[in-house]
């Protein structure tokens, strides 16, 4: 019984290990692409907001 349980756990850890390596590898490319786009979009959005705030300040003064 102990023998079977041990080898069952070995199989579980092996599956988790292979999946983790594959998942980390996939995320490097996926997040690299999607996250890069989001950062550019965030910078554009912050730029627009800051420009609008600057113009508002100018109008007030």
């Amino acid at each position: 019984m102990n023998f079977i349980a041990s080898y069952l756990f070995v199989a579980v850890w092996m599956i988790l290990l292979v999946t983790s390596i594959a998942w980390y590898g996939f995320l490097v490319f996926y997040i690299g692409f999607k996250g890069g786009k989001e950062i550019l979009e965030m910078m554009r959005s912050l730029d627009r907001r800051n420009q609008a705030a600057g113009e508002e300040e100018k109008t007030r003064s």
Binding site: L27, I31, K34, G35, E38, E41, M42, S45, L46, A53
Partner: peptide, 20 residues
């Protein structure tokens, strides 16, 4: 421009940057 930008990035963060 302010503490909101400094502390929580102006709450502009999207999901993939959040995961990273």
């Amino acid at each position: 421009r302010g503490v909101e930008d400094f502390a929580v990035a102006g709450r502009e963060m999207d999901v993939n940057v959040g995961i990273a």
